[in-house]
């Protein structure tokens, strides 16, 4: 018996080390990526030559396009006087994200509530995989669909000037966000103990009241986390906005205008940019911003979820 238990513990040790190693590799990879992006964006802070064209004040504050003209925010990196204001790109990203979430979150939550609380089990077994299949559609296909088909209908429906605008791109982006939010929200709702529902029904509540007043609040931390994850996906998504946004660096909050997102800017311009130029380093700086954005959002989400979980489970004080 003894040797076999020894080999058992050895193999256990090996597996344990392997798992630790895998976890370490992904963390080390993440750190290395961040170091690389950070290093490439550093000249924006250190190199006097690059700071002359793109210092932080030029990146974030309005500049006159030509001496004597009104100060504006412009992203025009290829120009006689290159302009590197990131504001139009940040506005564009947030605008599209807002439209996407306004579209996706109600839809995904309603679908999740329906499948977990009201749908008969045979229907649930159908609906869930089909919605999750939506996550498997390559974003390039979604972008193409938005560019060719949806843009025309949205333009005609609302009578818009711009065929490519934040509404149609935002909806396409929303379609990519729906499965992310749906899956997590559905899991959170299904994880609510059956006794909650039984108790509520026993007290005379209707199924709708039970779902809305009991199950939904109980699942709130998970649902909130789902929304945060959807937000992260919407901010970082590249291909859909690259194709359907029109990529015009306009600093307007109007959803009927085209826009240019941070991620699409990197995708469109990194390929041909001269290595080591101001433009190159500013693109990496955008990468750092995106990284910090998503990092911060995820952190906030985690923090909030933890607080809520403590509060709801009564371990708060």
């Amino acid at each position: 018996m003894k040797p076999s238990s020894l080999s058992h513990s050895v193999s256990e040790k090996i597996i344990e080390t392997f798992i630790h190693l895998s976890a370490a590799v992904s963390i080390v990879g993440l750190v290395l990526i961040f170091i690389f992006i950070g290093k490439e964006s550093l000249p924006v802070f250190t190199s006097p030559e690059i700071r002359r064209e793109a210092s932080l004040s030029k990146i974030f504050l309005p500049q006159s396009p030509e001496p004597g003209e009104e100060k504006v925010f412009r992203w025009q990196p290829v120009s006689v006087v290159p302009k590197y204001s990131l504001l139009p790109l940040v506005v564009g990203t947030l605008k599209a994200t807002a439209v996407a979430l306004l579209f996706a979150i109600p839809l995904a939550l309603a679908a999740a509530l329906f499948t977990s609380e009201f749908a008969p089990s045979w229907l649930r077994e159908w609906v869930k995989p089909v919605i999750e299949l939506l996550a498997g559609i390559p974003s390039v296909v979604m972008g193409f669909f938005a560019l060719i088909v949806m843009a025309t209908y949205v333009q005609e429906l609302f009578g818009l000037d711009f065929r490519l605008n934040a509404i149609s791109a935002g909806i396409a982006l929303g379609l990519a966000v729906v499965p992310v939010v749906y899956t997590m929200a559905e899991d959170a709702l299904s994880a609510v103990p059956q006794s909650y529902r039984e108790g509520s029904i026993a007290l005379g509540a209707t199924p709708w009241q039970t779902a809305w007043r009991v199950v939904l609040p109980a699942a709130f931390p998970g649902i909130f986390a789902a929304c945060i994850l959807g937000l992260g996906r919407a901010i970082g998504e590249t291909m859909i906005v690259l194709m359907a946004s029109g990529n015009a660096a306009v600093s307007s909050w109007s959803p009927t205008d085209p826009f240019r997102s941070l991620s699409a800017t990197i995708a469109a311009e990194m390929g041909e940019v001269v290595r080591g130029s101001t433009h190159y380093h500013v693109l990496f700086f955008i990468g750092v911003l995106l990284f910090l954005f998503t990092f911060f959002i995820n952190y906030l989400g985690q923090l909030f979820v933890e607080r809520l979980r403590q509060k709801l489970s009564g371990t708060d004080k």
Binding site: P65, R74, W75, Q76, P77, V78, S79, V80, K83, P88, F162, L164, L242, G246, N247, A248, A249, V250, S251, D257, P258, R260, A268, E269, G271, E272, V273
Partner: peptide, 28 residues
Amino acid sequence: ENNSGTYMFFMEFVLRNKDFSPYAMSLP
């Protein structure tokens, strides 16, 4: 897109080195 030679030509030759309007949409 601003990395294309056509963009450069248009900016230099037609716009005489003025900037494109920010509302100009760039397509690949």
